[in-house]
């Protein structure tokens, strides 16, 4: 196991180098222009544009830009944003708390809702509860979050006036009142996103539990007279968790990059919103910084998932 771990960690290094090179090339070649908004501004001459591009370092060949980026990144410097001229790391750190808090809580809500419902609807297949969760889950999933987000805003903010539609990042939790305000402003984004995640995860949990229920060992266990709950928890769940672990490991890095649509709808100043703004404004250093951290998390969590497989099911060998 340890040897496997070391080997995998060593392989991660060339993997990440390759990933960084590919991402950098994609971003450098992708069309776009940081000065887009001034395209039709008659007082911005071609020389001025050229000079600004030069000051942003865009006149150098791609491979030189890449090596400069790698050199700086290894020293913990992710460069300066084209748009705000402040360090990329500072921008990310500013956005991190709101992202992790809102998107992270949404994910926890999603997992907490999905697990019991997914398991129950698998065990009690075709029961009323299964039909209801299936239908509701698929309705929530079929509608994109820009739509459900708007729907809950119209309902709870505009009509009922119960909850704010806007996330205030200057709000600081100091007492019960401000804590209440914090909870209130989180309910809508966390709810919309959490239920979306739940709807999705629930389907997977249900399917993988169903798959296990027919396995011979389960029948054997029942035949041996073990109680239903015991069989479920001891045998079925453990094996059914493997696909779920796979998915969760794929999703957790996404908590870092945030949920772009939900963040925009509720004006949560998260990393997703930063990323999308930066992409639209061709703010390459910011996009590169966020994407590469995401890549590191992907590699890391897929490694975690691979290790968890063999813990969950000792038969899995590498």
């Amino acid at each position: 196991m340890n040897r496997y771990l070391i080997k995998r960690l060593l392989i991660s290094i060339p993997t990440l180098i390759a990933i960084s090179a590919v991402i950098f090339t994609v971003l450098a070649l992708a069309p776009g222009d940081p000065l887009g908004e001034f395209a039709t501004n008659p007082s911005l001459t071609a020389e001025v544009r050229e000079n600004i591009r030069k000051s942003l370092g865009l006149d150098l060949p791609i491979y030189i830009r890449y090596f400069k980026w790698v050199g700086a990144f290894l020293q913990g410097d992710m460069g300066y944003s084209f748009n705000s001229r402040s360090p990329v790391s500072e921008l990310i750190i500013q956005r991190l708390p709101a992202t992790l808090f809102v998107v992270g809580s949404a994910y926890i809500v999603g997992v907490l809702v999905a697990f019991p419902l997914g398991i129950v609807s698998a065990i009690k297949r075709y029961s009323i509860i299964d039909q209801i969760t299936t239908t509701l889950g698929l309705i929530w999933f079929s509608l994109p979050t820009f739509f459900t987000g708007l729907l809950v805003i119209l309902l709870f903010s505009v009509q009922l006036k119960w909850l704010p539609s806007m996330y205030d990042s200057t709000l600081e939790v100091r007492d019960w009142a401000s804590f209440g305000a914090m909870v209130k402003q989180c309910i809508l984004p966390v709810g919309v996103l959490g239920l979306y995640q739940a709807a999705r995860l629930m389907r997977f949990i249900r399917a993988s539990v169903l798959e296990q229920l027919n396995q011979e060992y389960v029948r054997t266990a029942y035949a041996k007279g073990l109680s239903g709950m015991r069989v479920i928890f001891r045998h079925v769940l453990r094996n059914a968790l493997i696909p779920v672990v796979t998915l969760v490991a794929l999703d957790v890095p996404g908590v870092f990059t945030g949920a772009l649509v939900t963040e925009q709808v509720f004006r949560v100043p998260g990393i997703g919103a930063l990323l999308i703004d930066s992409i639209y404004r061709s703010d390459t250093p910011v996009v590169m910084g966020i994407t590469f951290i995401y890549a590191i998390l992907i590699v890391l969590f897929n490694l975690v998932a691979d290790i968890l497989y063999s813990l969950l099911d000792p038969r899995v060998e590498y």
């Binding site: 990933i19 994609v26 990323l275 999308i276 992409i279």
Partner: peptide
């Protein structure tokens, strides 16, 4: 892993 990490929009 590489494909997962690529930024989709750009």
């Amino acid at each position: 892993d590489l494909c997962l990490a690529l930024p989709q929009l750009p």
